[in-house]
Design a protein around this nucleic acid. Sequence first.
RNA 1: GGAGAGAUGGCAGAGCGGUUGAAUGCACUGGUCUUGAAAACCAGCAAGGGUGAAUAACCCUUCCAGGGUUCGAAUCCCUGUCUCUCCGCCA
Length: 423
Amino acid sequence: MIDPQYLRSNLDAVAEALLPCGYKLDKETFNALEQERKTLQVETQALQQERNARSKAIGQAKAKGEDVGSILAEVADMGDRLKQSETKLDDVQSKLNVIIMEIPNLAHESVPVGQSEDDNLEIRRWGEKPELDFEPKDHVDLGEKLEQMDFETGAKIASSRFVVMKGQIAQLHRALVQFMLNTHTVDHNYTEVNVPFIVNADSMRGTGQLPKFEEDLFAIPDHGLYLIPTAEVPVTNIARNEIIDHIDMPVRYVCHTPCFRSEAGSYGRDTRGMIRQHQFEKVELVQMVRPEESWQALEDLTSHAEAILQKLGLHYRVVTLCTGDLGFSAAKTYDIEVWLPSQETFREISSCSNFEDFQARRMKARWRNPETGKPELLHTLNGSGLAVGRTLLAVMENYQDADGKIHIPEVLQPYMGGQKLIG
RNA sequence: GGAGAGAUGGCAGAGCGGUUGAAUGCACUGGUCUUGAAAACCAGCAAGGGUGAAUAACCCUUCCAGGGUUCGAAUCCCUGUCUCUCCGCCA
């Protein structure tokens, strides 16, 4: 969330800055509640102070053996007045909290202003499209012809948007995971973590999935728990309510998990194949850094994700999301999009964001600044490194031959027992 | 699933319903001493929030969480969460 004190004292500026992000702040309501809050809080605290003083006096009088009957009579109704005041204050504060928890992060000044993904800004390309002298198949045709990718059985077992993979394709999927984890731990100095795939509501609030985006999640209501939509949630929440020693900064975690998304609101979109599934696997990069280092960290983290595509020899581009396309919690996001020959277009395969202190404030993730000796909010970042399912289909489509066989990229061959060809 | 014990500051660990935001030790920070360091000694050392121009002053909240009793709760009562021990079950 954004800094409530900053919001209060810069309401107009914040409201202005939120407009390009497609958020209209109701200044009147906020101001009215804020006025009320101020009055009630001052009043409540004054009553508390009085109560404390009287109670202390009673204690002292009793200690001296004096009669306290008269003081007790004086404070008889204090409890009620205080309780009333506290209840009203709680009410106003929770209303304010609802508002503030649903305000998105402010975009960084370098983020292009725009309405939709059409206004995103391409900043670089790497590699080349594969030269295929035949009509390329998509991964569904390739996978089904190999009898190693089965969407019908996925639907039978669970529902639409699930898949069953078999044989070499399943193996290739696993190889990608291992390759990504090894690259990030060995080359990029991340610590591998293994975390719960089910989290509580506090964790979801911490990273910003709740309260606003509950419909996107798979929930387990009987237990008050949720399936994670990304490893970002459990991994970033490692720092929730913690004060990290500056010696341990920056924190760099890499984590492989399945991700579960309800895909509410995307009915009919990408219904074919593995592009948009209810369950997919992802290797996620998460960093927790000193505030002054977070913008450099975003560039680094993005390059770590790109390194995977480069090693795989996959053509991609990097785009900066415009204000209108930016996610709720992010201050800035780079999407990495990989080339898919079957669609003749680039498709998102990674999303790398700097959240600045937006998530950290929600979850009280702090570090101790040795210069001040005080706990201060840290900055959080994350990015896919990469989405495994989408990487799998990118490899399949870009490395197919005219016979529908798939040539395994060299870097993956060691993870495939030296195999070079699928099919 | 059954029985029991517990949760206090960065850590360890006291705490009778009353001037306890909390003894003590360790760690940490500053100082004295020392050529330097160690030791010793002295001092400091939780977080969040409000009023406010304030990095002034004053105040409020917080001893797992949420309720309750009370003029007053770390301390008493209820509920929940988590941890530990024993039994059962189990990958």
